[in-house]
Amino acid sequence: MKSRTNGEGLRDKVAGANPAPVTIAPMTQPATGATLLEARDLSKHFGGLRAVASISFRVRQGEIVGVIGPNGAGKTTLFALLSGFLPATSGEVLFEDAPILGLRPDTLCHLGMARTFQVVRPFPEMTVFENVKAAAVFGKQGRRSNQEILSDVEEVLRATGLAPLAGQHPPSLSLPQRKRLEVARALATRPKLLLLDEVLAGLNPKEIQEALPFIRSLNEKHRVTILMIEHNLRAIMGVCQRILVLNFGQLIFDGAPSDAVEDARVIEAYLGGQQHA
């Protein structure tokens, strides 16, 4: 398992320069499932600022789709629209073919959508265990036995490596641990679609190398479809079968990561972004 990870890590490094080998990842996990999420002409304006401008895309069941783009491109805003945290200015979002715009975040969570926050937002006065338990209890409608909930919580804590920290309070955790808590809480709601907002940011390369197989395993073992915002291109290349590139609120690319690095608009967006940064 470990050696395979390292092997892929190497391959990803190569992929940046020479895109050919990376296509292996998408091939092993063909995303032929039904459409799970679809956005149609989705827009969000903040006054005159078009943070999300008429974006359309689909995410099929079982895919891992990356969302990249320079700072301020509208990635987090897009997630907020999809998960019901912000009202859209216009457009439509379908989840499992049903329109979901206007539904509350808790309703969307019950339908099977969970998100993490770019700036981690744990419940500070609750232990790690209670943070995850709350998600396990309320993430799905219908009463579940306490035993079921507890075993769910323990499984999530183990999978995210938080089990030894179960009794800690979030303020005493390190940033990478808090990021894991953010993921653990989202996972405990048993989502069909997981929206990850920069969960790898702030992790060192070694921690990222450890996190990637975990994200892949969520997708493979638990059949969770993942939409993930990430700045770390290498990480995105390593796990995503497809990426969406945003720039100034617009979707400028939708396709294989290997093609993105050769796309003129993407290259320009990134060079332009770097000049600002």
Partner: peptide
């Protein structure tokens, strides 16, 4: 307690 901690996140977990 979750609502006390952060009511938006609380909504996010159902």
């Amino acid at each position: 307690s979750a609502v006390h901690g952060d009511d938006e996140t609380a909504a996010g977990i159902g």
